[in-house]
Structures are given as C-alpha cells and as structure tokens.
Design a protein around this nucleic acid. Structure first.
Lengths: 221, 221
DNA sequence: TTGCAATATCACAAAATTTTCAAAAAAATA
DNA sequence: TATTTTTTTGAAAATTTTGTGATATTGCAA
C-alpha cells in the first residue's frame, strides 16, 4: 500500500508514516498542497492523507486539483465540527475525513476503509436517489419529487450522515458525537428536534428515517 | 466510569477528580509514573489521564510500561509548547492529548471520546441466520421467514444477548444482570414475560429459545 | 448594535414499553 | 394419581420514551 502524507507539520507526517510502515505500507511526504499535486501527477498512490490548513496551497484546493486527473481516495485531516460544514461548501472529492486531534489508530482504520470499500458503501461525493428523494452531497442539495428542499446546515449534515450510514442503527449519542462533534455537551433530545425538522422537509420521504425506540434512529430505504 | 489521574500537582488532580465525580465517575490519583504503573497493574480503569512532566517516572515511560500489559485508553496532559512531546506520546500509545492550560470541560469531552472509541472496537457480529431467522445486530432488525419482526427494545436486547451466548445456559439472574443491568431491582419472572413476548415474535423459531427447567433459558440453533 | 435565521432546550401529551402479579398449564416427584 | 414445583400466559398498572410546539439562546450579517 502506497500512501501520500500531506501536512506541514513534520511530526505529524513522521507519526503517520511510522504507522503506515508498521503495517507494511510505504509513504511519501509532501509539505503542502503544491508538492502534493506534483507528487500525485508523478506517482500512483492508493490513498492520500491531506491536511486542510497548509501554506502555499491548502488541502481543499489541492484535492480539487488532484481529482481533476486522478481518482485517488483522499482522507482529509482536520475539519472539526464547524469546519465540517465548510468541507461541503467546497466542491471537493474527499472520501473521508478525520478530526484533529486524531489517534493514528483511527487514521489507519479509515485508510483501510477507503482503500477496500465495498460496492454498496457510500462516499461523500456520491449522488444517491431513493424513490423521489435525490441527495447530492457534493452539490449539497436535496430534491423531494424534483423540487429543491431548503434544508438548514444541520439538516444537511444530519441527512448526509444518515445516508452514509444507511441501514445502521444510530444512537443519539453516536449522532451527537459524529454530526455535532465529540465535544458537544448538551441535550440528547436536540437530535429529536432536528430529526423532526428534517422529516418535515423530506415530506413523504420522512419514512426513510426510522425511529428505533429505546435506541435512536436509522436511515432505511 | 473509573479514571486514573496522574499528575504531580495536587491542584490539577483535585480539579479533574471533581469533574469526573460530578459526572458520576470515580477517580484514583497517582503522583508520578511509578505509582501510576503500580495502580494500573492492580486495578482496571476505563481511562488514564497522564501528565508528561513528573518526577521519578515520566508520563511517556509510564504509558509505555502500562500498555505492555493492559490496553487502557490514555490521554496525555502536556504543557503548552511541548509540540514534540505530544506526538511522541502518540507513538507510544497515547490515544489523545490535551495541552495545558486545559478546560475541564474539554478534558471530559476527550474522556468520553476515547472511552467510546475503545468500546466501539468490539465487533458486533454482522448478520447471522438460523434457518429462516435472520438477525442483523448492526441494523437492529430481525426477519422471520423474510418478514420483518417488530420487536421492542428489550426484546432486541434479549435476543441479541441470547445469540451472543448461543449454546450457553443462562440463569434468570444472569440475564437480569447482563441484559437489564446489575442494578435492576425487580422480579425474576420479568424475564419469563419477555421471553414469552420474544418467542411470540419469533413465530416458528421460538424453538431456538429453550427452557431449562429449574435453571433458566438457552439459545440453541 | 439590531434583526433574523438557525439551533438548542424544555415540558407535556401521546404512544409504546416494561413490570408486576396471579391464575392456568405443564413438568417433575413421590 | 395426587402433590409439588416451575413455567407460561394474560391483563392491568406503572414507567419510559418519543413527537411536537413553545420558548430561549446563539451566531451572524447588515
């Protein structure tokens, strides 16, 4: 497995490289987006780990550039809570993201996930349709029977998260920690309210969001 | 939740302990790495908060030592500016780090994050099938001859517990303590009622839940 | 700053679930 | 077979959980 690690902090690169090599992979390093683009043009990588905040060319722009000519899975580093929102604002093709601070163990798990993703699993960049419900995660738009649904940012995030975890039972805690952020300290029932609003906007397709009594919710088409 | 707080400053230990206990957890304290290693050998903690700079045995060495024989999540507490130290800690098996001065709220959030993370690593068997009985623990759904069975939360939990302990004789006491919780104060016969309901929902596959007279029940396929 | 939209909290009614309990049924025992 | 023990069952009471509307708070742009 060949990995490209893009981060301006040498220590982070070193730690990630160590983990990749420990598992028998090899890694190249780039200090910024410009270098990353250049290396990707010259080499074939199985996956790119890309920091967001970097000098010269930032992670978002680098991904955009790389994806123009090569379809390599990209995992973004950083993008916490609020930045998660921005992630969708850009027209990028990141396949996954990891919030800092991350444990290298977690990063490795994501690498394995994106490199051998099974056919049925969803990626951030997919456009999916369930009956008359069309969801475009890159364009950040949702259509209900052909009509554009105006969702709030949280509603988009929640829906996208549901879709990426189709068929999986999700507790309120899991939703709060993954959609709101691991440092969200608040009421469980906040989830309920947002589910209510989201369901309202999905009109007849509210049925896809199933209540799992005593547990939480699940997206099921 | 049981936490081990390792720091040579008594003030810091006290503050952290207060927050842990406020949230219903309990905390032990160690003044240095040596003490921490000793306590970890003797007790089971859910998470360790470990300072880096300490007399006798520093935080890194302590983590290294502890991780040799126990896989406990460790959060490093490091002073600002110790950039190198943070990452070195990661390499040695720290699961997260917090820079001083930290807000107790932040520390608590990280505690929740790492404890959830290690708990989530346990793989719940994906989908199992016994003849026409299909059980999907991840999706929290059960199918009887292709038709979805609508179970109540306790019925799901009970069934999943049975399946995870296939072929093992389970007393009512054991079931109550594991499925209902060790703090359940109530009638033994409650189990019977739930077994009845569950059997009813499993239709012809009720046969898998075997009554062990004078003992309890067993799931046997 | 104000005003506005988005987000979060809360309380309560409605709905669903869990528990209790006692009678009936079944199994074991003598 | 009669007796005892244990399990099954049904039904009501008690409890928990969810959906929703009202309200408070936050964040942000003008």
């Amino acid at each position: 497995m060949k990995v490209l690690i893009v981060d301006d902090e040498e220590m982070i690169r070193a730690v990630l490289r160590e983990y990749v090599e420990f598992e028998g992979g090899s890694a190249d390093e780039a200090q910024d987006g410009m270098e990353a683009v250049k290396l990707c043009r010259e080499n074939d990588y199985d996956v790119v780990l890309m920091d967001v905040m970097m000098p010269r060319l930032d992670g978002f722009s680098a991904v955009k550039e790389i994806k123009k000519y090569k379809n390599i899975p990209v995992i973004m580093l950083s993008a916490r809570g609020e930045e998660y929102d921005k992630l969708f604002g850009f027209e990028l093709g990141a396949d996954d993201y990891v919030t800092k601070p991350f444990s290298p163990k977690e990063v490795m798990a994501r690498i394995h996930a994106v490199t051998k993703r099974s056919a049925g699993e969803r990626r951030v960049g997919d456009v999916v349709e369930y009956e008359g419900l069309k969801i475009d995660m890159v364009g950040r738009s949702v259509y209900v029977d052909g009509e554009k649904a105006e969702l709030t940012p949280k509603e988009y995030e929640l829906l996208f998260y549901f879709v990426r975890n189709e068929g999986i039972a999700l507790t309120r805690e899991k939703l709060l920690s993954d959609v709101w952020g691991y440092d969200f300290y608040g009421d469980d029932r906040t989830v309920d309210t947002h589910v209510k609003m989201l369901r309202g906007n999905l009109k007849s397709y509210r049925k896809f969001i199933v209540t799992l009594r005593g547990l939480g919710y699940k997206f099921e088409a």
